[in-house]
Amino acid sequence: MRGVNIGYIQSLKINPNSILVSVYITSSDILIPKNSIIETSQTSLFNNTVIDVIPLEKKIINSSNNINVFQQNCYKSQVLCHNQYIIGQRGLNYDDLIRATTRISQRFDDPRLFSLFYFFLQNSLEISDDFVNISTNISKLSDIFYSSLKYLFLCHL
């Protein structure tokens, strides 16, 4: 939890649609808020997996509240109690990263992508040339307009 090792996996039960993990928390003083994200994340290329517990709220739980995770009244509190469970999600892993990288590299290997990119660059160059021509024409028109106004005001004064 928050980057600190607080326990270990005690047992696994694999079902067709889920995995039930029993986690042993090393101290009864460690309080895990019920409103937490639980994720499994792969930490290295060698399939080392950790369970991340990420509290979503910053609740201050004082030890003066005397929350004992083994007592019956704990279930009414805002923390996980003994033999209570929370649903987790699969987090980041290197297999997904490799699959995503492979899909991206396959997209860049597609010749249609480069033809579209070349077409986009060619149109961008034409648009910029047109923009330069329009700017030049506007500059010439404003110069003519300025000269006309100058002549008009000087002749009538």
Rank of each mutant, 00 (worst) to 15 (best):
S18F: 12
L20C: 03
V21P: 07
V21G: 01
S22G: 11
V23K: 01
Y24D: 06
Y24T: 11
Y24N: 10
I25W: 00
I25R: 05
T26I: 15
S27Q: 13
S27K: 15
S28P: 15
S28M: 14
S28W: 09
D29C: 11
I30F: 11
I30W: 03
I32V: 14
P33S: 03
K34T: 09
K34V: 07
K34A: 04
K34Y: 04
N35L: 06
N35Y: 09
N35S: 11
S36C: 06
I37K: 04
I38Q: 01
I38W: 02
I38M: 04
E39L: 12
T40H: 05
T40D: 04
T40G: 09
S41A: 11
S41Y: 01
Q42Y: 06
T43E: 13
T43W: 01
T43G: 13
S44I: 07
L45H: 07
F46P: 06
N48T: 15
T49P: 05
T49Q: 04
I51R: 09
I51F: 09
D52M: 03
D52P: 00
V53W: 01
I54M: 04
I54A: 04
P55Q: 02
E57L: 08
K58T: 13
K59W: 00
K59V: 08
I60S: 05
I61H: 00
I61Y: 00
N62T: 09
N66E: 08
N66I: 09
I67H: 05
I67M: 08
I67P: 10
N68T: 07
V69K: 10
V69E: 10
Q71W: 00
Q71C: 10
